[in-house]
Design a protein around this nucleic acid. Structure first.
Lengths: 81, 81, 81, 81
DNA sequence: TCAGATAAAATCGCGC
DNA sequence: GCGCGATTTTATCTGA
């Protein structure tokens, strides 16, 4: 594709937007690692921290799922939510 | 590879074992679909069934995770479990 | 829902049938992993094994499709197959 | 653990920092999906876009690696880079 | 540094 | 046909 066409520029714009966002994501992932490293330096057991976070996440997910099934039940019973 | 060598036969044996197991897996997946189809025919809402199953699974996972973190805590405290 | 009603028992029966089948499926999936692990221990490259299996699967699908097309032609020509 | 202790607050602070960062990461991931969705709406084939991005990433990694090798050679030859 | 475990992406397939 | 969910593959990460 001729890179000077408007078409090519349009395409490149999308690609570069994604690439920038992926850079951001990578950066955030590194920030998370840094926090764990800092916690470890303060004496915390990283494995336990991860497990706590995982359980808290499951709690949240479970609550969300329960709300969803409630909505499904209400829809099945013809009730607005 | 010459398919008459012992090497080739050995390789083929692994491949065919996997292929048979994948057939089994596919069969089980179809059985599951059949059960949902039957439930639907009996008047159940398949989406709700799936959601219930999903929540029950989360319950089980959560219980398992809680046991794991308990074990981690006990290990951290130097207690056998 | 009152879990003692026939309705609830009926529902639970479906759910438990699916759960049992999902257990089976999980078990078969683990068996497949075990075979790959064994092959790996024998010196095979698992990634390549997977590739071979995938290609064989494609071949089979293609052959099946060609047979179906052949059957269609034969039917169109009024020939039994 | 008594959640009112300084210790518990300290722990919670780490956990919440990680949780916030994970929220951020999730948000960025969604932004990426949005860009792809927009590109799709403009007529692009998302699969191809992903392929292009993947190739560009490989190129970049390769270029970086080549620069590193070059630096190694130059260092081995006693040349500053 | 590597294997094993874990998590993330991409692809596939179903149901709506 | 399109989103959504499930599955599979790929990448990342941790512990030995």
């Amino acid at each position: 594709m001729d890179p000077s066409t408007a078409e090519a520029k349009h395409l490149l714009a999308f690609i570069e937007r994604v690439e920038r966002l992926e850079e951001d994501k990578k950066q955030v992932a590194e920030d998370i690692k840094d926090v764990f490293a800092e916690a470890k330096g303060t004496g915390y057991d990283v494995k336990i921290l991860r497990k706590i976070i995982s359980i808290r996440k499951q709690d949240k997910d479970q609550r969300r799922e329960e709300e969803e099934i409630l909505a499904l039940y209400m829809a099945a019973l013809g009730m607005a939510d």
